[in-house]
Write a protein that binds this DNA or RNA. Sequence first.
DNA 1: ATTATTATTTCGATTAATCTAAATATTTTA
DNA 2: TAAAATATTTAGATTAATCGAAATAATAAT
Lengths: 219, 219
Amino acid sequence: MLSFVEENYLKAIYHLSEAGKRPVNTNALAEEMKTAPASVSDMIKRLSEKRMVDYQKYRGVNISEKGKIKALHVIRQHRIWKVFLVEKLNFQWDQLDEVAEQLEHIKSPLLFQRLDEFLGFPKFDPHGDPIPDENGQLIEKRKDPIAQLPVGTASIVVGVNGSSASFLKYLDKVGISIGTRLQIVDRMEFDGSVDITIDGKKTITISPTVAENILLSEA
Amino acid sequence: MLSFVEENYLKAIYHLSEAGKRPVNTNALAEEMKTAPASVSDMIKRLSEKRMVDYQKYRGVNISEKGKIKALHVIRQHRIWKVFLVEKLNFQWDQLDEVAEQLEHIKSPLLFQRLDEFLGFPKFDPHGDPIPDENGQLIEKRKDPIAQLPVGTASIVVGVNGSSASFLKYLDKVGISIGTRLQIVDRMEFDGSVDITIDGKKTITISPTVAENILLSEA
DNA sequence: ATTATTATTTCGATTAATCTAAATATTTTA
DNA sequence: TAAAATATTTAGATTAATCGAAATAATAAT
């Protein structure tokens, strides 16, 4: 059984290694964990003894298969709680992580099974990130431009194509950013302009070009 | 800020002292906490330095006002979670405590505010125990016999009058125990017999005597 | 290819929580 | 009330997690 702290290290290693693609170095991990490099060395040694990571002195650390499964477990629980906090308790985006980081470490398979069911087996969290299944399988987040989604779709902005300053400025002006919840309410046949409702509040019309460049997750 | 362990000690001291009425001795606390008496001595010293308890060597420990408020806070959170687990996630009675004992230590006033609201500001937990308010005020649980409650009442069994073996055997047979949820569906005028539904499943008729001796909480 | 810089690890200490065994205090009992 | 029994505390160790400072390895620069 891993401690809270060990679980947090694994999560950080998983993220910093981009799901295990590259080794993680001590200083980066120390910064992520807001701790001293000396502490990281100690902890890595411990995680290595538990076969959660592969480690060679001075060579950085790689997450093991076992460690990856554990990390994805914690990530699953983190994201399920986020769905709960937003959908049931009306939390704002910026209040989420502090609480979810505590809740993610609760040990009870039954709780997560039931919570998952209560929430209708969500596949994505409120930020559009995919929720790994019980076996640690991660469905890659599909990103679809608004232009290709049907009227009625309600989803989360997970990215944009391109990054011209003027486009980002426009998005900022109308109040769209990563994580914003949009609903597609209408599409004009003659030119492909789209009416969207932003965060359930105001409705605006966007041009076909804009609709091509805002990506929603299939939530 | 208190640690999980300190919070658990305070809760145990609160309970064993019957809400602060009598001092708690080291061995009792050690048994409750499933730990060695020596560990209890150490911890009490620490809690005493933090002014959470009043302590004189060999004289047992008394919870302080400050400690009582903290303990009631944890108890509040424990009971709110229990309501959630039963009402929203359909937990059974025996699965409750293990999970609630983890959840009760989450630090987030906002979470509990919202959760309380989400659950409709419950005043009692699924066992019929009262939920202290944010200030640690505890409404004493009122125990009313079925015979004195109106038809339509749905509540929790919190106790019984007397304890004759045959009565308890009868209760066991029909499936009633502390914590059972009952609904009063009808009352015969001519003799005061009562029809009750047990745990929302089966409906039985009980005699006026039985109705006089099963106590429900006013939930 | 040395030297300088940066990254990492080791060493020795600290704090919280725990334990066993030994010492000490309190209570009970004869 | 003195001895026996019980309860409690102290002393000394242990484990997890942490740190600063010193030592060592790896990398970059001249």
